[in-house]
Design a protein around this nucleic acid. Structure first.
Lengths: 113, 113
DNA sequence: CCGTATCCTCAGAGATACTG
DNA sequence: CAGTATCTCTGAGGATACGG
């Protein structure tokens, strides 16, 4: 199977996973949600262990699935900004819940506050 | 990197993704949520393209992360049931939202019904 | 600065067979 | 029925270099 099946188990959650699943997408979406708008390099800094190739690939996929918007300024040196568009913003409640759940359940978080 | 970093981007969503991320876990959790309780074989039937090996591996991980409960009946032939435990149930709102979002946004869903 | 192209590795996933 | 044990292999992901 190349891509995640969009209807594995004949189940509506599958489409969601097909566009936002994988190792990085939720994380990228979450960063774009919490920072509102980020340049390519800033995003890269936020995610230390993502590689150049992965990040640009992820961003391209998120664009083609209509979750984010890319704004390119025609200048030297180049400047490109990414942000959630409407469809992407509709994922925010999920992102928030995932973050809250992580805060609640992460072993170490119990101590930190 | 072997496992998903639990704090990539220093972000609470990472823990959530570390226990429920990957290709199958959300799907398995969703099945256990919607069917309440499932035997191993039933789960396998629900997810046609998961392999034997993957399913048992996923189930083991979900157990060790305390999301699901395994109940084994000592009989021949064996019978084993899986269901969400408390921690797993706390993910239900997220699962629901993912399913709803999928229903709303899946391209084909517009036509089919 | 923001990407793309290329090459390569390794772990995730498949197939199959075996066991309690 | 519900798993483990191997062995294999593919493709996602990493490293690096180049291009606009």
């Amino acid at each position: 199977m190349k891509k995640w099946s969009k209807d594995e188990g004949n189940c509506s959650i599958s489409y969601t996973l097909s566009v936002a699943g994988g190792r990085w997408k939720w994380l990228v979406l979450y960063k774009l949600f919490s920072k509102q708008v980020l340049r390519y390099g800033e995003l890269k800094k936020e995610l230390p262990s993502i590689t150049h190739k992965m990040l640009s690939q992820i961003l391209k996929e998120l664009q083609s699935d209509q979750l984010i918007e890319r704004k390119s300024y025609n200048q030297i040196p180049p400047k490109v900004e990414y942000k959630l568009n409407e469809k992407g913003k509709s994922l925010i409640p999920i992102l928030k819940m995932m973050a809250d759940w992580g805060k609640e359940n992460s072993p170490k978080s119990k101590e930190n506050f």
